[in-house]
């Protein structure tokens, strides 16, 4: 295809009108104090979308025990294989419980498959996102840690209450 270049007048070919136009545009933005888009992060926070997928956590049931039945569906579906479960027997009605439940946050890609696949809604992607650490070993979250994170109330505005205490979505 052949492009038809626009025919420029002599004055336009000196670049000056375009340059002056550009200068005017950038200058007009200087006094727009009200429309600054900067978010001063640690103090002001971004309003998260409702379905934001942050760190995965384990939820606790009304009986005070973790809801997880150690079916390992999440472990199998996890694309980067970040989840590792060691099952154990329990006297509770669910008969099986996770003796160990670790998620390697160095591997997690926040895809949310674990949450989707879980039959008892025991794992949930919360709205926490400040997960950086100086030590990789500390990025492997244990069961206790995941449960503790699940019990914490959501700390950001703009997200539905996560499903804790066993209520249905």
């Amino acid at each position: 295809m052949k492009l038809q270049r626009p025919k420029l007048t002599w004055w336009e070919r000196t670049y000056f009108p375009a340059i002056l136009q550009g200068l005017a545009i950038t200058f007009r933005h200087i006094p727009r104090i009200k429309k600054r888009v900067t978010l001063e992060y640690p103090e002001v926070r971004w309003e998260l979308p409702k379905k934001y997928r942050g760190a995965p956590v384990l939820l606790t049931g009304l009986d005070g025990h973790e809801k997880c039945t150690s079916c390992k569906l999440c472990q199998f579906i996890c694309p980067p294989r970040a989840i590792n479960i060691v099952a154990g027997e329990t006297d509770l009605a669910k008969e099986k419980f996770p003796r160990e439940f670790t998620i390697d946050m160095g591997l997690c890609i926040f895809c949310g498959y674990c949450q989707e696949v879980c039959p008892v809604e025991a794992i949930w992607l919360k709205d926490e996102y400040e997960l950086a650490d100086y030590d990789r070993t500390r990025l492997i979250y244990t069961k206790e840690e995941l449960l503790a994170r699940g019990r914490k109330p959501p700390y950001l505005p703009g997200k539905e209450k996560p499903l804790t205490e066993g209520d249905k979505p």
């Binding site: 200058f27 933005h29 727009r32 900067t38 001063e40």
Partner: peptide, 13 residues
């Protein structure tokens, strides 16, 4: 600062 203002940002503060 000026570049920030021209891009509707706040700049170092």
């Amino acid at each position: 600062k000026v570049s920030a203002w021209m891009q509707d940002r706040k700049g170092p503060n």
